[in-house]
Design a protein around this nucleic acid. Sequence first.
DNA 1: GTCTATAGCTCGATAGAC
DNA 2: GTCTATCGAGCTATAGAC
Lengths: 196, 196
Amino acid sequence: MAASPKGRGSDPNARQRLIEATARVMRDEGYAAATSRRVAAEAGVKQALVYYYFPTMDDLFVEVLRAGGESALEHMRAALTNDDPLHALWLINNDASRTGLNTEFMALANHRKAIRVELRAYAERVRDIETAAVTVALRANGVDLDEHPPVVISMLIAQVARSLCNEVAVGVTLGHDEMRAYVERQLKLLAPVTGG
Amino acid sequence: MAASPKGRGSDPNARQRLIEATARVMRDEGYAAATSRRVAAEAGVKQALVYYYFPTMDDLFVEVLRAGGESALEHMRAALTNDDPLHALWLINNDASRTGLNTEFMALANHRKAIRVELRAYAERVRDIETAAVTVALRANGVDLDEHPPVVISMLIAQVARSLCNEVAVGVTLGHDEMRAYVERQLKLLAPVTGG
DNA sequence: GTCTATAGCTCGATAGAC
DNA sequence: GTCTATCGAGCTATAGAC
């Protein structure tokens, strides 16, 4: 339970706290709210300390993307090797806190070159992993991979899930129930549950 | 060719120029770059004039959304009543300048209530129009509307197209060719060309 | 209707004490 | 490693001349 004063459980060093605080602020209030003063307050340190650990705010953002990306990739690798990878892919991309942060980085990347480079590399690693998992699942179920290319199926599942999350974030839910039912139906067609 | 000095062709009134300038800056450099000084310069007027026409910057953003939204809806209604509505829907949502501006508004809406309310109303009008067009197209081609609900098909087409545009904007194109080929194939299955 | 000028604020980033 | 203090810039918004 009790974390030591300088342990790495709930009270890690300031650098790590700054990275986590920045991710939290970006997710909850948008990247525009992630100023040096705001994230410092969130991490319980003073503003100037941000520039001790990170030369510029862009460097901090890149670090948030790297750290969060590694953890997300790890989570993804684990989830995509279970019984029902297609369903796992759908669930992962329906996680609002994950997709919300990702959306903020997409917006940031649109006008910050350093972020764009990093995000692009990350997005392609994600796609590779997701596509590999889908390839295994489709092949195991005898699906024709020419008619249903794994990269296409993985993009469809991931992007539709993220789009729904983005819409929910602004209050749009029209058609969502129908879409979720439709996706469940299609997933069962592609990979009927066999693990029973 | 020559527009009159105060005509409404290429040199409309200042208010209209401010709205168009704001849309341009948002699309090209992101909403964070759309400051009162920046959009005033782009429109060829001084900063204070922005506040003569719009009480706050949020009011200006809402006006950009309303004006651009009306014009987009008009364009959409026209395109969706032609021979091949499904394909038209796909093409409209592949227009990078349209989807780029829409993405900026989604990002803005995440932490500005006034924008969120307006965007939500607009998004639902768009979905209604798109769904109506898809309904007509599917019914005309004898598609089972229970198996393929129009609202789902319209969301799939529109959201996949927008997702591709968003990815292109940050330099990600992995799997895009396969996806575009796949979509063309699926659209032909749902609505084979009959107008020849 | 358009301008100049400015108040009041927040930002990124730096200097330097401890 | 963390702090206080501050600079210079850019922002929204307002006041008031023309």
